[in-house]
């Protein structure tokens, strides 16, 4: 055998941190689309209402929030109808939360298929994020219907050119959710302690993320020590920005946007690296 044989690839125990295999992932792009299709198509097979079920959760949550926080709790929403305010926040929050929870169990939920055949594992969490986009679309549509309803009944609402920022906000929420999800799934393949925390922590996180209240209210009414947790939470900036974009309410600053971008990208990258490192051997310890 000559010394300079050309090998297409080698499988060994050594892995570089930054070996992300992007080219191979690209080769599997059809698989990504098929996974997305599978997730969407099979979620409501053999139901009569089908994708309309996606609407039940945000509508009822908004209703409950309106009754509890706005009617009982007297939270001010800067002149925006509280229901609409809550619906906007919940639509955005749901997208983030679904991205996080659907990806945070990637390794464990797919150990069966991961244990049998190789493909770039990152395809699976990516497909979840894309499939959730479809859900988000439906929920945004219902939001627009309510929006028009309120406009028709005389509320003065002014969407602005800021709506063009929508793709950016979606991208940020997706990368933060995906990044966190990948970190969690990578860290829970061997020691599962963290999984116990995820469900509980996400529901708590919602209350720190300015979902049922505007940031201005938090600044006024929260205890001093808690305010930074809300203020510097990239999620509350995202939710606030999202609402600002749709309803013209709340605060928006370029500084906050840059800050959110930075944090999201860093977390996304960390998640990607950890995930890639874990995928090589997780099947032995999962």
């Amino acid at each position: 055998m000559s010394k300079h044989e050309h090998w297409l690839y080698t499988i060994s125990s050594e892995h570089k941190w930054f070996d992300l295999n992007l080219r191979e992932t690209w080769r599997y792009r059809d698989l990504l689309l098929l996974f997305v299709r599978r997730d969407i198509v099979t979620a409501y097979k053999q139901t009569i209402l089908g994708p309309l079920w996606f609407l039940v959760q945000p509508l009822f949550t908004s209703l409950v929030f309106t009754l509890v926080f706005n009617n009982l709790g007297q939270i001010q929403t800067d002149g925006v109808p509280p229901f609409l305010f809550n619906l906007a926040g919940i639509t955005a929050w749901t997208y983030f939360k679904e991205c996080l929870t659907n990806t945070s169990n990637t390794f464990r939920a797919n150990q069966n298929i991961f244990g049998k055949v190789y493909f770039p594992r990152v395809i699976v969490p990516l497909s979840k994020v894309v499939a959730n986009l479809f859900k988000f679309g439906i929920q945004l549509f219902i939001f627009i219907l309510f929006y028009l309803f309120f406009v028709y009944h005389g509320y003065e609402l002014s969407p602005s050119l800021n709506l063009l920022l929508m793709p950016l906000y979606l991208f940020l929420m997706a990368s933060l959710g995906l990044g966190l999800g990948m970190i969690i799934t990578a860290m829970t393949t061997k020691y599962r302690d963290l999984t116990v925390l995820v469900g509980f922590a996400t529901s708590l996180l919602m209350y720190l993320s300015a979902v049922p209240y505007p940031l201005s209210e938090a600044r006024l009414k929260f205890p001093e020590w808690l305010i930074p947790f809300v203020e510097f939470n990239p999620l509350s900036q995202m939710i606030e920005g999202f609402r600002y974009m749709l309803l013209g309410e709340g605060s928006f600053s370029l500084w906050a946007l840059m800050y959110t971008c930075g944090i999201s990208l860093v977390i996304f990258l960390m998640g990607l690296l950890l995930f890639n490192r874990t995928e090589k051997r997780f099947i032995d310890t999962v």
């Binding site: 690839y9 080698t10 499988i11 060994s12 055949v117 190789y118 099947i283």
Partner: peptide, 17 residues
């Protein structure tokens, strides 16, 4: 499993053309 890249070896290499 190692050949099909489901898991990595502890030591050693697989080279494939």
């Amino acid at each position: 499993k190692i050949l099909s890249r489901v898991t990595s070896p502890t030591i050693g290499v697989v080279k494939s053309k």
